[in-house]
């Protein structure tokens, strides 16, 4: 129903009170929030790459430059950092929702894609944390890669693949940078696109069936 009064507040009220189809749930926002934050990640990531220098000797200095000298550099890096954390939390919420309400039964492909996306998100968070190449990043790499090593059978191979050597070296940074900038974002983009396409198809089919 439309509020009887006029004005901006009445307009806002009429929109807020507009009934939506009972099929919608407020938990549906997780997926779209992830998509929006993913776009934010791409934009801020491109901006950061304008100043970031992946050479091991220069990496930390370039991050310092972004934080200290570049105008709004702290804002761009902060957005990139915190929205990645938000994506992690939202992705967990979304998967939990899909799991709990049993939505995975309706589209198993979409569920597996979601799980794969969570792996990408973790991989991005891990490789991204190495890029400042400071003490924290170095020890974080050491600890995380040591735990990877404990995976049976493939641990050693995986470790040497990620390290680029027997231990954390300059090659580790190069590999983390390559994966963070050139591999996982594209895989993630493809997975998100396929997922959105699958959901849209499912949605139109469902509505077609209702008519």
């Amino acid at each position: 129903m439309i509020a009887r009064e006029e004005g901006l507040l009445a307009a806002l009220w009429s929109v807020l009170r507009k009934p939506v189809s009972p099929e919608f749930r407020s938990t549906f926002v997780f997926g779209w929030m992830i998509v929006i934050l993913f776009v934010l990640q791409i934009v801020t990531g491109i901006l950061l790459s304008l100043y970031y220098d992946p050479r091991p000797a220069a990496a930390n200095e370039s991050v310092q430059l972004i934080m200290r000298d570049v105008s709004s550099g702290w804002l761009i890096r902060g957005l990139h950092h915190w929205s990645s954390t938000a994506i992690l939390i939202l992705a967990l919420c979304q998967l939990l929702r899909v799991f709990v309400v049993g939505a995975f039964r309706r589209s198993p492909t979409s569920w597996y894609l979601g799980c794969l996306l969570l792996v990408f998100v973790f991989a991005q968070a891990f490789t991204g944390a190495l890029l400042p190449w400071d003490n924290q990043a170095y020890w974080w790499a050491n600890r995380a890669l040591e735990s990877l090593e404990s995976i049976p059978y493939i641990g050693q191979t995986l470790l040497s693949f990620l390290n680029g050597g027997p231990e954390v070296t300059d090659h580790t940074l190069s590999r983390a940078h390559a994966l963070h900038v050139m591999v996982f974002p594209w895989l993630g983009l493809v997975a998100v696109a396929v997922n959105v396409w699958l959901l849209a198809r499912q949605w139109t089919r469902q509505r077609g069936a209702e008519r």
Binding site: I2, A3, E6, G7, L8, L12
Partner: peptide, 22 residues
């Protein structure tokens, strides 16, 4: 739009335009 007559419809449209502006 859930309205009873044309006058309410006009009001609703105005509200909607305002909302778009906002």
């Amino acid at each position: 739009i859930a309205v009873d007559d044309a006058r309410h419809y006009e009001r609703g449209r105005r509200n909607r335009r305002r909302m778009h502006g906002l």
